[in-house]
Design a protein around this nucleic acid. Structure first.
Lengths: 197, 197, 197, 197
DNA sequence: CATGAATGAGGATTCATTCAT
DNA sequence: TATGAATGAATCCTCATTCAT
């Protein structure tokens, strides 16, 4: 029992070290030896918790992705109307990008890299289901445009990653106003807005 | 044939090889030796055309970015109204993402990686000026929402990258209809909503 | 056997391999890979014991230099008169050049090459202090000519290196008689000539 | 004729470049490409004048060695007594070490390195004959100690190299007084000094 | 469970040399 | 004669992984 506890600590330390190093200089600057050192652990120990580097990276991705979705849906309940539900989720995601900066950065680094297995990527998306359900309902009710989920995601959620990275690079500042404006843009892009014509 | 001049052909072959290999398996799977082999050239030859790997990657990025913007603005002229201009550019970019798939994929891999120098990145953005000018005018004329250029980019251009990558992964198909729908979403997200005029 | 400690044996083997290879064909013929092979070790292992090639070479130099001075002063005590002391040290050095031939050859290779860091070189000279003290006293007592230590070294110790290298090249043989003659030459060159007293 | 002239210029430029680069950072910092560049010549051109790097280095050595001995014996004539003759030669050599600093430095770098072929080395020593003849006569006349030529060289000429290198390193200054003192040391070390006892 | 030492395979880069002109 | 481009082999070094303890 006690040993098991200790183990989880080490596993977490390794995950954290991976995130930190990848964020600092990208995947190519996160060798196993450095990850081990950052986690105050022997290189050999990593292989007690993970099958290898690929596995470590994948597991880290899943962990962070799960943390992301948990955060996103923490305050969401199905019993609200489409726009309110969407708004709630969207703002939670925006909040995540701002508050859990390390994790958000890590996810964005994972976005377009072949470092993450395709299977693992699919696994990571599963937890997004509540949002997909919401969209489905929204489309059925004629409130949201009948677009593919990918398109909806591309126009509402993904821009937040782009803006967060821009902020991280120091070329842009995500103020409260900017976020509100971004929400409006997001909603406008997918809402069916010809009802009162 | 001609040996008195460093052959532009070899340089191009190296750039192309870099794009290809990075696209296939990411930066970490594009060693100089493989790049050389792919370009049918000796490893040492690379160093006649580029200062090192960093330089090769940077130059490749700039080359592709330039190709991208050239394509984007090829049919654009300033003398049209805001929406027409935007539409023209947007569709050219969409076309680029579809037709110049390799180059588009490469650019998306560059987006969130620290492999590209920050200076180089800034250099690459310069050529986007015509679009920024258009947006400026659009904002002044009250046609486009008064948003930061980063937000405008995040909501109109960046989603295309996301969708292109999704398509490349085989989880999504960018049909003509999808593109038209995407355009509508893009425009809706940034146009000034004048329904209650 | 024991693996919990970096084995001093391996370090020594590496130092020895370096000496051997440099002696055989000079610095330029002692690549890390060959040093590793000669020491029956993986190339990567070298980097557990040394920071890089520069460090390996420097450390080897210091090691040998230290071995040299230890040998030189092993039988020397301050309580003898100047000439006896000098003679003792001189003969020990001569003995070193003959018996520890590998080390002596290595040191002579280091003499005029920029492969050794200047700092490291200075460090190596420190241990020569007893001889310098002896000289100082000898000069004060009017027994040794009032020459710079560099000149004293050039005329008494350095010739031994020259002769040893010549012997190694096979063009000359350092017999006992030659050594005695060399000692006389050395002492004559620095002793205060008191013939006309 | 004109072409031949030009050729000699290039050959000389190459020799000079070799000396310069080797002096600056040792043999390992004098790649063919740099030598070519320093001599304002194409790398390929080197191979028109020399068989390869080994040959270039050897020929450079011989050239410099020849320049050295020429200088050393320029003012020497056989018709003087032993000590005067020796003194003349010795001071010329000292002058060479000071005035032709580049060449002297180069020679000292060649001293203990296996970069120079043994055959080539022997060839270089040949021109020293006048000094060896002088010594022979001196020994026969009972003026110089009956020592091997190597020992005589080690105690009279070689120290000058040592001192010159020390000066080059900045740890020692070869003033006129030092040189005179050095000469005395040199002569004392080999002269048969018990004649008037 | 945990470790530090050890490693072979592979990475970027340089070099002496050659080739086509 | 002279060249700049081109290169395969070799160099230093790093990395993911394993092993003996």
């Amino acid at each position: 029992m006690v040993r098991l506890q200790k183990s989880i600590d080490k596993r977490n330390a390794l995950i954290k070290a991976t995130i930190k190093l990848v964020n600092n200089n990208g995947f190519h600057a996160a060798p196993m030896s450095k990850i081990a050192k950052t986690a105050s652990v022997s290189p050999a120990t990593i292989y007690l918790y993970f099958e290898g580097k690929q596995d470590l990276v994948n597991k880290t991705y899943l962990e962070v992705k799960s943390s992301f979705t948990t955060y996103a849906f923490a305050t969401y309940t199905k019993d609200v109307d489409i726009e309110s539900g969407f708004k709630k989720i969207w703002y939670r995601i925006a909040e995540f990008k701002l508050k859990k900066c390390d994790e958000a950065m890590f996810l964005s680094q994972c976005d377009n890299t072949p470092m993450i297995d395709e299977d693992c990527r699919k696994e990571g998306i599963k937890h997004l289901q509540p949002l997909l359900d919401l969209w489905k309902k929204g489309k059925e009710e004629g409130i949201i445009m009948p677009l593919s989920d990918y398109v909806l995601y591309a126009y509402t959620i993904n821009p937040l990653s782009f803006l967060m990275v821009a902020q991280k690079r120091g070329v842009f500042k995500l103020t409260k106003e900017q976020i509100n404006a971004a929400y409006t843009a997001a909603w406008n892009s997918i809402k069916k807005n010809n009802k009162n014509k």
